[in-house]
Write a protein that binds this DNA or RNA. Sequence first.
DNA 1: TCAAAATGTGAATAGAAGCTCACATTCTAT
DNA 2: ATAGAATGTGAGCTTCTATTCACATTTTGA
Lengths: 209, 209
Amino acid sequence: MATRVPPQPESVRKLPRQQRSRATVDTIVEAAARVLARRGWAHFTTNETASTAGVSIGSIYQYFPNKLSLAEEIRNRHLDAVLAAIVVPDESDASITLEQRAAALIDGVVAAHSVDQRLHRVLLDEVPLAARSAQDVFEAEYLRRYQAVIAAAAGRADPERDGIAGRVLSGAVEGVIHAAARHGELQSPVLRAELIGLACAYLHSLSGH
Amino acid sequence: MATRVPPQPESVRKLPRQQRSRATVDTIVEAAARVLARRGWAHFTTNETASTAGVSIGSIYQYFPNKLSLAEEIRNRHLDAVLAAIVVPDESDASITLEQRAAALIDGVVAAHSVDQRLHRVLLDEVPLAARSAQDVFEAEYLRRYQAVIAAAAGRADPERDGIAGRVLSGAVEGVIHAAARHGELQSPVLRAELIGLACAYLHSLSGH
DNA sequence: TCAAAATGTGAATAGAAGCTCACATTCTAT
DNA sequence: ATAGAATGTGAGCTTCTATTCACATTTTGA
């Protein structure tokens, strides 16, 4: 996990200036991520985070104004890692078939959901939202990719319908992937094939009227 | 909301025997559902439930051994209501088209998700699972309906593939509906049409090839 | 070298909330 | 009518945990 400059804009807390404190902050965030994944948000405590990190509770509050800000830092780092897992294919290459585009899209989303699944689930549906800056970037990146595929499929552009189609397709793909993740089948090639089949069937129906 | 016999099997608590106490239990559960929907699981408190119900905190613990058992009772009642919203079409009538079957399925699932949406979301992704007995019935009922439609679509029966297809279709439909619910578009006819289109496109691709 | 800044410590504080229990009230059956 | 069961009450006990603060240690820069 890369070192980031963590604390929040309005944070009254110190910024880590020396190498030593930057390492401490990283240790804290990594330990916190492990505790959060293991216990869930409801039983995520700052004291357990401190002892897991081998650090005094006070050290956490040197750099994080409260428990939530710690979780938000974890989320920011995690979503960075998730986005990094997505491989973007060349969108302007006309020689790529629709099937290939759909496959690349789905592989990217699967890869994104393969990064620390338990932590991902806790971060997305347990930790309160507050300022969801990173989450927006995250969703925007997804949307961009879906719309590229849809634009390629539907030769003509009906922006109104394409927008809805994008939301339908993304909802469908995410739904299938979340269900698969719950059953531990995210890596199943049969599922991958069936999901690509679903996407292609829908995409073809958009152009063929 | 119908009166049910609530407390858990292993509960050391009393069963409500008189009319008066049955009414008290109903009042408690209804108030608890309101509090849970309003505050979310993290800020759902037994004291607020008691004051909202106009009942002493002690009365709650007469019938519920702990906070979680109260939430589980709410979930049981809610899922009953959700299942009741699903209209089941005649599965043996061969004169019904695939489009009509898909539409009936989707309308049923949408109706199920239209029952007390906020509470539904909190119950499904905030309240801890523990013994998820009712949730299993709930999912099994869904699965049954998806498989009926898939069996009708794919003339021949390839049980292996049909099973996966069922999970893919249900994941997709649920995903789209959850996304729509988040954006408050559950009642949109455009979305309904597009979702039916998605389902039909996939179903046709199963038989044709 | 040494003073000031940065960093680290953990006992103690404070508040929230689950749950108990001794007691009061109401209902049922005889 | 009345005893005993069922029901209802709410102050307060207990546990948990976020956060503070007075202090100790380490690093930096001159």
